[in-house]
């Protein structure tokens, strides 16, 4: 076979051309249970950590910690539970690509909203707010408040 196929695009296998080859394909690979148990235990520990850390007030650092832990947990779910660790190249490219485009969306929206009011202060102000929220009476306790 002298056919050139970019490995990442074709997922490494050309089915139509190599019938015999793909019979014993990698989907028969069975992940050892210890990976799954390990993932479960780490996820539980990380959940505990994120809840524990949230009890203290570190200001904006809380968001950083919470997001860092969430990203780590997501990484475990994606690589172990969703099997990305053992998956074809293109499946990875596709999924990670979606995050790139999401980031583009985020970036450009914030390149607008973060820099409003430069031309005219009116752009950054709010007028005619019709809030449905009823103001709290003096001494009244907000319902359903949790520490």
């Amino acid at each position: 076979m002298d056919i050139f196929i970019p490995t990442i695009l074709s997922g490494g296998v050309s089915y139509m051309s190599n019938h015999a080859h793909s019979e014993e394909h990698s989907h028969h690979f069975i992940v050892p249970v210890r990976y799954y148990v390990g993932a479960l235990v780490s996820l539980l520990i990380l959940t505990f950590i994120t809840v524990f850390v949230a009890q203290f007030n570190f200001g904006s650092f809380n968001l950083v910690v919470a997001m860092a832990v969430a990203v780590l947990k997501a990484g475990i779910v994606i690589s172990i539970f969703m099997g990305m660790k053992w998956d074809h190249g293109f499946n990875r490219v596709a999924f990670l690509g979606s995050l790139v485009f999401l980031f583009i969306f985020f970036l450009f929206v914030f390149s607008d909203v973060l820099f409003r009011g430069y031309r005219s202060p009116l752009e950054a102000t709010q007028i005619n707010l019709k809030s449905p929220v009823i103001p709290l009476e003096p001494g009244e306790v907000q319902e359903g408040y949790h520490k």
Binding site: P132, P135, L136, Q142
Partner: peptide, 8 residues
């Protein structure tokens, strides 16, 4: 929304 609260 019908609740009482501080933030509008």
């Amino acid at each position: 929304f019908t609740a009482h609260a501080v933030s509008e």
